[in-house]
Nucleic acid binder design. Structure first.
Lengths: 392, 392
DNA sequence: GCCCTTATTTTCCGCCGTCAATAAAAGAAG
DNA sequence: CTTCTTTTATTGACGGCGGAAAATAAGGGC
């Protein structure tokens, strides 16, 4: 076991520098003046903060010369050099591990996945280390250093402590995953909840860029929700937040594994939809793919199940919008494969149940490639690297 | 009409000074060392920031000498001199205006209320000015200056702009209330939503002191909710947040004035309870007082209505807890008069519907004297005074 | 080549908050 | 009674961040 190698640190010790870098990272090439405006700083401060970042190779002056119809001295935009550093993101599910190698701009360079033979921390750790090793080798071929490893796990995760408090799928309790993975890989490790990791990716690199209040809703086996309020991801006082899946939308609805009735997840989760289709149609659909296919063939019972799911999701989103008034809600997740089957119901239910100006909230969808969860994990690693010492 | 007089400003220009003052304000007498610990600053910084505040009279060295069994140099705690400045808080409802004169520690000195003869901005403004004038006279008798006026209005209020965007009770749209009231009273004016104002009071002077994530739920004619996330009151991107009253808890429930069915407010709002009792019992209860009395006499239908209300409120609170994971939820409001009638149902419904560690959230109640809303308005004025230039 | 405009850089400069040393105010020990 | 110990408060030097203003750079128009 190698010890943790002396990690390269990010040359931005002041809040301003880190804020400036984040601004450039999220908003693409920007002139120094523009950065100053967006970050609320003086142009002088930007020049000073940018120089060491350019010297260290994290920023580069953009040489693109788009037709500048401008008067005056031509602007000299800077952008992040994605190739300067690489990061690894790993998503651990109940039955497989997905890993990606991304650059500093969180663009995926390589993606891998392996089945998970063993849910014990030891076995999972070995699989993670193996995948990370492969990706480290790829990075070595590219001649670029890997500066961080992010791991996303569903359940109650304490990112600050690097501990998985409780993961139902893995049946883990209080596993100090960050410490363990750091010891085996030699990389700085960030561990976070999977939905929050996805939310970080949206906030820094996706549809949430520049928004101080938005929500990400994931639709799939479970229904999850990541929240950004006041520009920060909500973690909850007890480590759990965004449990939209267990918001009750119909007290007389079907029972949920959580012990209640009519949770969003008990109506719109994959298993709930399949079960409902079986009950309604008598067709022995085995999984989501078959359920979607049946609905696409026009089966009324199947379509009805998806319609109900859409209503439940729309109602759940309206609840979030009524309580938090976000600027935008991004719907994502594996369940989007069936999006055409419930898009209308989501929108209708949301529009009906959103109160007052909460209805102004922009509800949009984003496809979720299967590596996206791992990319979220990489995003948390990038975030930790950039904001090593300060508050997020 | 006098112009706005040259307002006395708070001698705390640095973030640290304002943070230090707020810490002392909320946590009572503290030694400088203790302040430094809580605010994450060095003791030296505290000493330096405290001096001008003592010179200006806002802080005083506490002369109380509680039995100090301590070794070493005796501590010299400082506290806020509540009598240094006064503030006026005004709550405007659909049919009356309540005003309080508070000191800097938000303790009520005088409370007044008058009926509201006229809902036009002009008439309301006249009433506010009249009440404010009376309280200014009282303050004059005390020989203490009034340094701010806070006005709380239900509905969509843009505090930053000082504008009431939309108030259903008053039937106002885009009324620049802060500007108008400042012109007539000569005081610096803060306008905020009533529930948010109450939340500010709890955050700075009540049960929310020291908590970075909590919620305030008000039960009465409507059901409202103020949220504090990451230590800041949530205002929502479109000015509306915390609309727990229009969270759907039962799609087959009674219709709500918002156009949906089964909103919390449509089940647990005062009018909903009265209506339901009338329908269930046939007794022509006229108002909440009679409804409570009937239930207290043991009438089954009335008790049932309150039980249903309690369930709806508990479910609403569980929804908030599931989504945000607050440390604590404070239930308050005029409806607490009937608290014994639904306390059990609130707790049961919350406990059942709270998911995982969200159930650790501490649900407590606080009585709500009728001047409390106005006190919230005063709290916003105090907040504005202390944080005149910086972000909240 | 000169002027105008806009972007960037340079040069101070103020000021906040930390550090380390010192003073202060007790009780404890002798 | 003196001295030591312990804890709190204060002081003064210092470093560094970020701002303001002025200087410089880099075009285009004429």
């Amino acid at each position: 076991m190698s010890s943790i190698r002396r990690a390269e640190t990010f040359p931005a010790n002041t809040p301003a520098a880190s804020q400036i870098f984040t601004t450039v990272l999220s908003h693409g090439p920007l002139t120094r003046l523009e950065v100053a405006r967006r970050a609320g700083l003086s142009p002088a401060a930007v020049t000073k903060a940018v120089r060491p970042l350019i010297e260290a190779g994290y920023l580069v002056e953009d040489v693109d010369e788009p037709a500048r119809p401008a008067l005056g001295r031509p602007a000299n935009p800077v952008r992040v050099d994605g190739g300067r550093a690489l990061f690894i993101g790993v998503k651990v599910t109940g039955d497989e591990i997905i890993a990606v190698l991304t650059d500093l701009c969180c663009r995926i360079r390589v993606a891998r996945h392996v089945p998970l033979p063993d849910r014990e921390p030891k076995g999972v750790l070995a699989s993670v280390a193996e995948l990370a090793g492969e990706l480290l080798a790829e990075a070595g071929d590219l001649g670029v250093a890997v500066l961080g490893l992010g791991i996303a796990v569903s359940g109650d995760v304490d990112r600050g402590a690097g501990v998985v408090r409780y993961s139902p799928f893995l049946e883990w309790r209080d596993v100090p995953l960050a410490e363990l993975a750091a010891a085996t890989t030699g990389l700085p490790v960030t561990v976070d909840n999977d939905v929050r990791a996805l939310t970080v990716a949206e906030q820094w690199f996706g549809a949430g860029v520049g928004l101080s209040d938005f929500a990400v809703v994931t639709v799939g086996a479970g229904i999850g929700c990541g929240l950004v309020v006041h520009g920060r991801v909500v973690a909850g006082a007890h480590g759990v937040a965004g449990e939209i899946g267990h918001v009750t939308v119909d007290p007389s609805g079907p029972p949920c594994h959580c012990g209640n009735r009519g949770c969003v997840e008990a109506i719109a989760g994959d298993a709930a939809i399949v079960r409902q289709i079986r009950e309604a149609t008598g067709v022995a659909v085995a999984d989501t793919a078959e359920a979607v296919a049946l609905a696409h063939r026009g089966n009324a019972g199947a379509r009805e199940a998806y319609a109900r799911a859409g209503e439940a999701i729309g109602l759940g989103i309206a609840t979030v919008a009524n309580l938090l008034g976000p600027e935008c809600v991004i719907i994502s997740g594996e369940g989007l494969a069936a999006y055409d089957l419930f898009a209308e119901q989501i929108r209708d239910a949301f529009a009906a149940a959103a109160f007052g100006s909460a209805a102004q909230c922009d509800v949009q969808t984003r496809p979720l490639p299967f590596e996206e969860w791992a990319r979220g994990a990489a995003a948390t690693a990038i975030q930790s690297f950039i904001q090593a010492d300060q508050q997020q």
